[in-house]
Design a binder for these strands. Structure first.
Lengths: 139, 139
DNA sequence: CCTATGTCAGTCGGACTGATATGT
DNA sequence: CACATATCAGTCGGACTGACATAG
């Protein structure tokens, strides 16, 4: 089972990174961009907790996005040290193109499965994540 | 969906590598060791094809296992260049301990799922792998 | 003082591409 | 010559730990 999960993840990452490559984005950057959209104005530390990576890792991802002009980081007026991250117009546009590409890859992956099977699979995967103590409940 | 698969894989890898660490093995080494057991006497190129990685990557993994004395590599008598990889007694022993550790992690991961759900999940995951063209059919 | 945040620097596992030598 | 195999060297994305400064 672990082996199959690992292989699936590897195949998926490969397909996704190939698809994202023309846009100049890595998978980690695409993921971070999605999180920023779903909750605008988070700090680096908050972003890191949401994606379950360290703030040191997240900072590199965000720096890449900032260099590309896809996000901006503005100091919180009420808190001198915190930098709140927000999508730019170009960030929104690029993110939408990524979504379309991701959907194509996912469609290929799920080709054999009908809709009810797909949602059941997603539920089961989430249950596995919970079982490993990496659940979707953090900040 | 892709996001959940990625997160699951990351959590799983983390747990597994922590469990394997006292034995001095990496996940890639454990995987390779399992493949060698399931088909003794494969060449490096064959091992690479089975696990869908490049022979250049596999050679590093195998070298690590050889250094630890868990596998041996002997030249094929009928083919001067090919090195056939086989488990040593210690390799078999270490592998069995790894299996026990892996089972514990998997049990935690699958805690919420009953037996029929588990096998269905495995089937679905394999279908996804096939969908991405990384199926289990190669040499 | 303690905690949280941002950030630099280094390291690591695991995969890749490129190049090269050699055996069938 | 073409092809497969082994293998060295370098690179890359993505995550980690350690260390440190600063804000509340």
């Amino acid at each position: 089972m672990s082996y199959v999960i690992g292989r699936l993840d590897r195949a998926l990452r490969r397909r996704l990174s190939d698809a994202l490559e023309p846009l100049g984005l890595t998978i980690a950057q695409y993921t971070a961009l999605s999180i920023v959209r779903s909750a605008d104005g988070l700090s680096n530390a908050q972003l890191a907790r949401r994606t379950l990576i360290t703030p040191q890792s997240m900072i590199k991802v965000i720096a890449g996005l900032e260099d590309k002009g896809l996000v901006t980081r503005a100091p919180d007026p009420d808190h001198g040290r915190v930098l709140r991250t927000a999508l730019t117009a170009r960030g929104t546009e690029v993110l939408e193109r990524c979504d379309a590409l991701e959907e194509q890859v996912e469609e290929a992956m799920l080709a054999e499965l009908a809709d009810p099977q797909r949602s059941r699979l997603l539920d089961d995967l989430k249950a596995c994540v919970r079982g490993l103590g990496a659940g979707f409940g953090g900040e």
